[in-house]
């Protein structure tokens, strides 16, 4: 397989999530914060949902959906992580989803799709698993997430070895996220950004949390050799500090999209307009001031 087509090593992702199933409670606060921001979107709609799929919710999302009276299935690449969500749960690969068409009216993916190689393909499969007018909600770390760490690691490695390997995942730009939903066939796509800033007194705790969440490096082209011994100490020492603590940004893209249905608002037919835009905006010649 071409590394360019598969930026992420899915076996490593699976391994990281298996390992993290035992430790993810250590980072539950962060996951809960993101999940609650995401599920707040459910309160913005009057729609009632009856059957939901939680994708990679790490035991945080499924209980919250069930508490709202929604029958919820949970899936994860790691069987151990899927089990944390409670039954019914399924171990499945987001790139090869095993769900019959129109199985759900709500799908929620909280911080779980950023290690998928073919994100547009996964989004299409998720849309097909939704009934018409079903809702898809996802939070994804966007570009800017862990930016402080990325810069510190790149600078430290360049100064130590004269080169730098990818050590922080490439995240999508928030501006591309709505387009991504639209290309996957979702109606009324919206992507908005929310920043969560964490402050670490001890920068090593950041690495410990990333590991506890199953978020260590699974970039296929990662440097598999042990990093230079000084790399992490030098990089972490250079993280910017404010009041003795190191701020770390999580820039979340909150995605909302609907499975298309005839009942939704549609754009007017092309050519159905009754007023010429030229009458409103003119024909491109300089405006004439009306006295």
């Amino acid at each position: 397989m071409e590394p360019m087509d598969t930026p992420f090593d899915r076996r490593a992702v699976r391994h990281h999530r298996d390992r993290a199933a035992a430790t993810t409670a250590d980072v539950a606060d962060i996951l809960r914060d993101a999940a609650e921001r995401l599920l707040d979107r459910l309160d913005d709609t009057t729609r009632r949902f009856t059957r939901a799929l939680d994708v990679g919710g790490r035991g945080i999302v499924a209980p919250r959906l069930r508490a709202r009276g929604i029958e919820t299935f949970a899936t994860d690449l790691s069987p151990a992580m899927a089990a944390r969500a409670g039954a019914p749960a399924i171990a499945a690969d987001e790139e090869f989803l095993p769900f019959a068409p129109a199985s759900f009216d709500l799908i929620v993916a909280n911080l779980s799709l950023h290690w998928v190689n073919d994100l547009p393909g996964a989004l299409i499969q998720l849309r097909l698993a939704l009934r018409p007018d079903g809702l898809f909600l996802a939070s994804l770390p966007a570009l800017g997430t862990l930016a402080e760490l990325r810069t510190a690691l790149t600078d430290a490695e360049a100064s130590l070895t004269g080169g730098a390997a990818p050590r922080v995942s490439p995240f999508p730009d928030l501006r591309d996220c709505a387009g991504l939903l639209q290309r996957a066939g979702f109606a009324l796509p919206v992507a908005d950004g929310e920043d969560i800033t964490l402050a670490y007194a001890n920068p090593f705790a950041l690495l410990r949390d990333l590991r506890a969440a199953g978020e260590t490096n699974a970039v296929a082209l990662r440097d598999r050799r042990p990093p230079p011994r000084a790399l992490f100490p030098v990089a972490l020492a250079s993280l910017p500090a404010r009041d003795g603590r190191h701020p770390v940004t999580l820039r979340l893209a909150m995605l909302t999209g609907w499975s298309p249905a005839p009942s939704q608002k549609q754009p007017a037919q092309r050519g159905s307009g009754q007023i010429s835009l030229t009458e409103i905006f003119g024909d491109g010649s300089p405006p004439i001031s009306n006295k």
Binding site: E71, F73, P88, D93, A100, S103
Partner: peptide, 14 residues
């Protein structure tokens, strides 16, 4: 196995 799972699952490859 939860019978509801049998309703919604299909082969992931085919």
């Amino acid at each position: 196995v939860d019978p509801r799972l049998l309703e919604i699952l299909v082969c992931p490859l085919t």
